[in-house]
Nucleic acid binder design. Sequence first.
DNA 1: CCCGAACTGTGACCGACGTCACTGAAATCC
DNA 2: GGATTTCAGTGACGTCGGTCACAGTTCGGG
Lengths: 209, 209
Amino acid sequence: MDVEDWLTRLSLFKEDALRREIIDKAQLVEIPAHTTILREGQYVKTIPLVVEGVVKVFREEGQREQLLYYIYPNESCIISIHCGFNNSKSHVKAITERQSTLILIPSFESATWQKKYPSFNLFVLNLYQKRFDDLLEAYDALAFQRLDARILSHLEMKRDILKISSIRITHKALADELGAARESVSRTLKKLESEGKVQLQHGLIVLLG
Amino acid sequence: MDVEDWLTRLSLFKEDALRREIIDKAQLVEIPAHTTILREGQYVKTIPLVVEGVVKVFREEGQREQLLYYIYPNESCIISIHCGFNNSKSHVKAITERQSTLILIPSFESATWQKKYPSFNLFVLNLYQKRFDDLLEAYDALAFQRLDARILSHLEMKRDILKISSIRITHKALADELGAARESVSRTLKKLESEGKVQLQHGLIVLLG
DNA sequence: CCCGAACTGTGACCGACGTCACTGAAATCC
DNA sequence: GGATTTCAGTGACGTCGGTCACAGTTCGGG
């Protein structure tokens, strides 16, 4: 599979001229799991379009991290586009959650392409919309929900995406994603288990109900 | 001042045809302070473009509210556009902070206008960018900052906008904007006063330093 | 100028969650 | 199959901020 194959499959960009420009200027990369693809304070020169795998985007401060959202196939990181536009630094970090395939599109073209190609403009716009929703949801969770509810909905989200109700994750990793302490997560999971909402095994959480 | 006058003054929309469409279909309204212009669960039919005054946008859940951002002159609420686009319900509330003048633009046109008029497209895009930043900042504050820091930066933000370092606000109102309890805000303000960072008078907070 | 309403200050208390310090259990690796 | 690393469970305790209950202060209108 090369860039052209993926573009055809994604059918995100309608105009032939746009596809040709992307094929010409973008490169396809395979990235192993748990690799940083965007760090804080970095100027962003490419838009990473995820075609396979998952990328996690989060804020980091000191020891704590706070998940913003995940990027799934067919999507990209709005923040890259955002920073490319404003020529500003990134305030977030992005790492691959597992082995992933990305198309790296140079971002300096994006403003031009948005003017020239309606489908590229729509792509960016849809992305902003989606991320805005994601962010609003994340904000909401932080502002109004307690840890038990946050854990549960986080797990449900994972289940819906992976389409498996047995989620392979350690308490530590879960805690990190939620910006919480491992001990609190362990305790809360125990509570959820006693309430019959999950079932716990070593390195594995099974959602019930 | 009518819609046409304001549009000329704002110089946000370049195309004559677009301006004519807006003048034709939009209406200018004066809204008193503290009036709800968008409530939760409502389908949104108009884009409120603020030309004078300030509008506060926030999430509400039970008794607590949580500020998302303010809309100042020349800006609009991205959520209205967002909901118009997806024909989805609003998840936020918006109220005027003071007497405000708005241009209400019917939102069902917005998708068309974005295709037809570059300046309208840019307007929407810039709005998404700005709000995305605002939201990210709000999220950050919630995730990583304690009340004293949040109060201080909130006040500084107000100062920068109003260009006055004496901010006329009650502790209750400030607490609401931060989604905190009044007593905590009062106590924290006292602490900030003893640290020489602010000066307190009845209904007034003066930023020092 | 007085009274009631709105605003502010403060103590007592509590709940949620973070931190520290362990212990025990599973998994992994020679 | 023991040793080591990683993961999970748990008690003790601290901190931040919310809630409750009131008291004191300031303001604005009749």
